[in-house]
Write a protein that binds this DNA or RNA. Sequence first.
DNA 1: GCGGCAAAAATTGTATGCAGTTCGAAAAAT
DNA 2: ATTTTTCGAACTGCATACAATTTTTGCCGC
Lengths: 218, 218
Amino acid sequence: MPQKQGKTTRTDSIVFRLTQDIVSKRIAPGTPLDETRLGQQFGASRTPIREALRQLAASGLIELRPHRSPLVAAADIVRLREMFDVMAELEALCAQRCCTDMSAAQRHALEAHHRDMATSVREGNVADYRQGNMAFHALIYDGTNNAYLKQLALMTRERLAPHRGVQLEAPARLARSYAEHEEIVTAILRGDQTGAASAMRQHLAITQETLEQIAAQR
Amino acid sequence: MPQKQGKTTRTDSIVFRLTQDIVSKRIAPGTPLDETRLGQQFGASRTPIREALRQLAASGLIELRPHRSPLVAAADIVRLREMFDVMAELEALCAQRCCTDMSAAQRHALEAHHRDMATSVREGNVADYRQGNMAFHALIYDGTNNAYLKQLALMTRERLAPHRGVQLEAPARLARSYAEHEEIVTAILRGDQTGAASAMRQHLAITQETLEQIAAQR
DNA sequence: GCGGCAAAAATTGTATGCAGTTCGAAAAAT
DNA sequence: ATTTTTCGAACTGCATACAATTTTTGCCGC
């Protein structure tokens, strides 16, 4: 489960760096991770290394067996596809629940946020849009008023985030993404459960296509 | 996240005991967990305690913020209801996916297992049925051929298991549960996606009713 | 008496040392 | 030459000691 990193503790720093190294394939899958070696590599003691490795294991990035060196998990394309698939279903469920379980304030917040994102699209500000997009989906998670569902969806999205790399960089994609958001929002406001769910599914299917391209180009 | 407990390492032992203490309410929600105190309470050093706490945090049983004592997460009725809700949806999704993604061998295994469970029902053997029920649902998780979906469903079920207490003890419940299983199996074998999903949802709604009774009697 | 500040106490984060287990290599037997 | 056994090295699991940070407590000023 991802932690905040407000006051970067050493463990969190190591988690971050190791995560990047793994998802960027700088460390090949199947590689055994030696605690002492990592320790002197990162200039830290074994203790924070161990904590970091536990967190990575919880994230599914590595596998650890008792008394044995942790192995970098095979983040194969198959597994990523599966996760994307489940994420789409989770978010579709969130959108569906939003139709019935959202408070008026939450509905207004979602609508307002979506309108605000229009400026990022017009300016072609990719960084802003990226951030706004995350907030958009977070608002939908919140709208379910189901903490566990929110937690699962967030966890899945965050775990997938590092693998998405440099996608939706093209301004054209921004406009399309925004249009899809529009569909989702209107469906939710209309209370159209199946419409909201399918709109969300389709929205995420686009993202998944990008993954397939990345997979193909290897 | 599956954890073996073959060669009980001290950390795993502590994880197990703490988990039981938390879900059985022996430790009240909101209680701060002091590492040193736990250490001398369990007769262990702080190191394995820390590792155990990380795992519990990953399981969502406790919450930890940097430089602050971990707090036992509130497992209130509201949260439990939410988790049951999500579990129903996850399993409904599993059943739906089984209709399309199951192999022939998996279909046969599910059918055979279901038939075998009839004897437990006839004999009124609650313990056997309980075990068979778990296996039944596990077979459906497997049938999705989606490791991540399986992981989420299993995790949710396991986390909920301790709270289900002494339900479905009455032999009458066994027969009813079995009939519901029957519906699910036939829907899956027929390839009826929506039928399988709704049958599963209804099957779990029964379970949830029991929870409500437990909640009410407190 | 009340609010802010500072120092002390308590608790988490980190480092290091030791013991137990696993894995590999060398040696012995077939 | 191949297989088995044994021994050693390396690494993980655990314990303890130290550093950093937070919280509490006591004091001073208002």
